[in-house]
Amino acid sequence: MAVPELRTRPRTVEPFAEAEYPEHPYPGARPDCSFVHLDGVGYPLLPDPTTTSGWRVRTGSGTEPCLDAWLVEHGAAPLRRRRPVLAYGSNACPEKVGWLRENLDLTGPAVVLRAECSGLSAVWSSGLRPRDGQRPAVLAATSGVTEQHTLWYATAEQRRVLDRCEGRGKRYRLVRLHDSTAIELENGQTPDRVLAYTAAVREMAPLLVNGSVVRCAELGQQQALGLRGEPATGDGLACSEIVGEPSAA
C-alpha cells in the first residue's frame, strides 16, 4: 500500500513546474510518468517505438519530437550516450532535481524514466540524512516484490553530480547491478549496465526491525523516523562496486 510520502498523481500529459512535486518530506512527490527536466520544468515522455530513442517529448506546444532530437536541439547528449542509474529515493522528485542544479551545479536536461523493478526495493536505512535529519532510502533485494522506481539516463558529468549528492565512498557506493533483467522501462525495454547507489557503511545499511527490512512503500517518513532496530549485515544485491569511472562495457 502506497503512503503519502510516495506521492504520485494521475498520469501527467502536459509540462509541469518542478514546484508541483515538492521534495519534502523525503522522498518527495513524483509524477506518474517518465519525464525530462530542464530549467525548472518537467516535460512528460511518451513511449514510441517508431523513434530512434523510443520516446517522444510532450512539449506543450503542439509538437512531440523524438527525445533524442529534443536533447540534441538543447545541446545535450542523446539517450544512447547516457548511462542508466537507478533512482529509488528523492532523485525521482522533480524539485530535488532542481535542488541539484542550485546546490551541486547539475547542468543539462535530466532524463528520468519510470521503470518496474522486480526483486529490488527501496527500504529505510539505519542512518539519517546529514543535511536535514530525515531517514533516507537504501536499496535491498526483496524476493517476490515489484516496485515502481526510475532510471536517470545520466551523462558522465551528471553522474558525478549524483556521486557528490550521495556521498559516494562515504555513505553510498556506486555499483553495477548484475541482474538488470529485473528492470523494465515503461516502453517495454530492458536496460543493461544499470548503475545504482547502495550502502557503503554500516550506518547507511538497511534497517532491520524484528529481523526484517522496512520498505519505504509501506511506511512514511514521519513513522520511519521512529523506527528502532539494527543495521543489516548486507543488502542481498547481486552487484559489483565500481572503482573510478564506470567502463563502457
Rank of each mutant, 00 (worst) to 15 (best):
L79T: 14
E73A: 15
R56I: 01
T59C: 11
G75H: 07
R83Q: 12
G62K: 00
E73N: 01
P15V: 12
E18F: 09
A19L: 06
T59F: 08
V72Y: 07
L71I: 01
G89D: 00
L86N: 08
L67H: 07
E20K: 03
R56E: 09
A29Y: 08
E64I: 06
Y43N: 02
H74T: 00
L67P: 05
P25G: 02
G62V: 07
D32P: 03
G60C: 07
Y21M: 09
P27F: 03
H37N: 09
D68T: 04
W70P: 00
G42C: 15
T50W: 04
L67S: 05
H74N: 13
P44W: 14
F35G: 00
G62F: 00
V72E: 15
Y88N: 07
P49G: 05
W70R: 00
P31K: 14
D39I: 04
P84Q: 07
R58N: 04
D39S: 13
G54H: 10
A69E: 15
V57Q: 12
V41R: 11
P44E: 14
G54R: 05
P15L: 12
P31E: 09
H37L: 12
F35P: 01
R82F: 11
L45R: 12
V41D: 03
G75K: 06
R58A: 12
R56V: 05
V57M: 08
E18M: 09
V72I: 15
R80Q: 12
G42H: 13
R83N: 01
E73H: 13
D48I: 08
P25S: 10
P31W: 15
A17P: 03
A29D: 14
D32W: 11
L79A: 13
G75T: 01
L71K: 08
D39V: 07
V57E: 08
E64L: 12
A77K: 15
L46N: 04
D39K: 09
T51W: 10
T52Q: 11
D68N: 15
T63M: 11
W55L: 02
R83G: 01
A17Q: 07
H37I: 07
E18D: 14
R58K: 07
Y21D: 04
Y26Q: 02
H74I: 02
P25I: 02
G89V: 02
